[in-house]
Design a protein around this nucleic acid. Structure first.
Lengths: 331, 331
DNA sequence: CCGCCGGGGTAATACGTATAACTCGACCCG
DNA sequence: CGGGTCGAGTTATACGTATTACCCCGGCGG
């Protein structure tokens, strides 16, 4: 009543275990006759044989599994990164497991123990850099996503053309006559947000008015921050560039509560293009980040590293999606 | 330069491999002296030894890993189910891997091949029942989430007190004087949605007016469906009970575009309490489903099944969260 | 002085697979 | 007719761990 092994198949088919392994591993060109190969395959399926992965992994010294480290899976962006990575992985016979504490509550006692499967390599998003230190699997190949390409021990980097995305949003607003801006920044200390701030400062800072407000990455935090920031009618900005759609949604709520219309009185842009962007009213003008592609590229990069192939790729392009939360600057 | 094995630790510490295994496996009470045990542990850490999981799994015949089958991880509800399951798993030294095609594009050629790690058991959400058939791991213990407890081959079921949740929403609206209802139903053929429809029909059908409209599970589909359903001012309902927050968000958008105010002209309720519920304006009155708890209970149930322990638990209670999308029926 | 016991370890083995090395006819060519 | 080659398999082994059965030695009761 236990699961059949390759040896069970062998005795049932009247051949040796080695033959079964050769046939099922597709390594039998010229080593086993067509007829026996077919016979072996048939008995294998009738017995319902499935190879024991643990044994295979032990033998091969590789698990064909990657560990993806993300801060929180409930963040749609990272769920999509996972989706992309898992798709590419599956196409190459790889699997993807996630770092233990997907809720961001920190590492388990033995981080790798929770990612039970042994691992061939690690893909880590920059926002999970702290968790990465806790892991300390220094011997494993590492690919970093959306993080400082000049730092760290990563064998490869996958990045978004974030500066260009910010530029698109800024030029869209400038084209609509906006001159007084507010940057609603995510209160998170990671490279991806530094880059956004830096891009905005160099693009808008010298020639226009640019104020910065920070808020934690939640709708409520953003709304609260904006309610105080917009309270004073004098010196009020006409456009808000948010680091993230979640912040943009909060900004829109704040505007509404203060009696400001979006986009007539105030334009708002986000970044990400989550499902949220089209769920709210007005639908958000936002910079779409192709999260699945980030995951796909990450997995491809890791596969290349594992095979010793060189891997380089340009930054992933991003595009502004214009919807209803932006419009001409008020007179 | 390769990873140290238990034998490396043994020779370095001047003991046998068996001793290393005993010490690190915490099975040395009275078999190894306190002093050597400490010495072994020390050399293990200085060498940076980490056990080879593949070998351990092969030896023990168990992988301490569960497979979680969900339709789409980008759906926040399922991401939270995963989070809960992974937390409980980690506390018991278990891991959780996800079913191959988290984007819902269907199974890979060999479903289990993608979930590379060998698996001790399966936890499946009812919405992924079709995918489950494709898997066909009939020999593995199975726990089903949010699905018909009288059907299927599952060893355990975890369910929500959905009928009670629907009742709470209905009574909330009845208490506000509503008598003309519309049920915006998810166009998905699974038990959890059947149950909601049935509960609503028995609660409201006999005594009040109850119409049903179906829509796919997206904001846009819901908005479109509601725009046509609400177009005719005569016979217009005063309250919409939605199967899901996403549908509720769509219903609110439709209302706004038709010039109806929520909640003054129209009350709307959702189910789930996703992040979305508080991101939109007005914030949604909704039935909160404790998704993490579903995952936790699911994992606990699987652990019980694996250990041969009996497992029973009452339905997980759910609660109506009253916010701003519901109010008194218009005169 | 001998047998026994228990503390402190060790040798040996099995888990199921993949693959390198080997065997054994049959056939072919010189 | 003998050596070489090729097709079709088989035998043997290693991967790294957990665990069972054994071993050795000092002390102790009889």
């Amino acid at each position: 009543m236990t699961r059949p092994t390759s040896r069970d198949v062998a005795t049932a088919a009247g051949v040796s275990q080695a033959t079964v392994s050769l046939v099922l591993g597709d390594k039998w060109r010229g080593r086993v006759s067509e007829r026996t190969a077919a016979h072996v395959r048939e008995t294998a399926t009738t017995l319902g044989y499935r190879p024991n992965l643990a044994a295979r992994n032990l033998r091969l010294g590789s698990t064909r599994t990657a560990l993806l480290v993300v801060p929180a899976l409930t963040n749609e962006f990272f769920a999509r990164v996972y989706t992309g990575a898992a798709r590419v992985a599956a196409a190459h016979g790889f699997g993807v497991v996630l770092y233990p504490s997907p809720d961001g509550t920190g590492p388990a006692r033995d981080p790798f123990a929770s990612a039970r499967a042994a691992i061939d390599g690690v893909i880590a998003s920059s926002m999970a850099a702290a968790a990465l230190d806790a892991i300390g699997g220094d011997d494993l190949p590492l690919v970093m996503l959306d993080s400082d390409p000049t730092a760290g021990r990563a064998a490869a980097h996958v990045n978004l053309a974030m500066t260009d995305g910010v530029r698109q949003a800024a030029e869209h607003l400038l084209g609509h006559g906006h001159r007084r801006f507010l940057h609603l920044a995510a209160d998170v200390d990671t490279w991806t947000f530094h880059i956004r701030a830096h891009a905005l400062a160099t693009l808008l800072g010298p020639t226009t008015e640019l104020r910065t407000v920070r808020a934690a990455l939640s709708v409520d935090a953003a709304r609260t921050a904006m309610e105080t920031a917009l309270a004073n009618p004098t010196e009020r900005p006409t456009a808000i560039l948010c680091d993230d759609d979640v912040l943009a949604a909060g900004a829109c709520k704040a505007a509404r509560r203060l009696g400001l219309r979006v986009p007539e009185d105030l334009s708002v842009t986000g970044i990400d293009d989550l499902g949220l962007a089209t769920a709210v009213e007005p639908e958000l003008t936002t910079v779409r980040l192709p999260a699945e592609q980030v995951g796909e590229h990450g997995m491809n990069a890791l596969l290349a590293v594992l095979e010793g192939r060189p891997w380089t790729a340009p930054d992933i392009p991003v595009h502004l999606v214009v919807r209803d939360s932006t419009g001409p600057a008020p007179a």
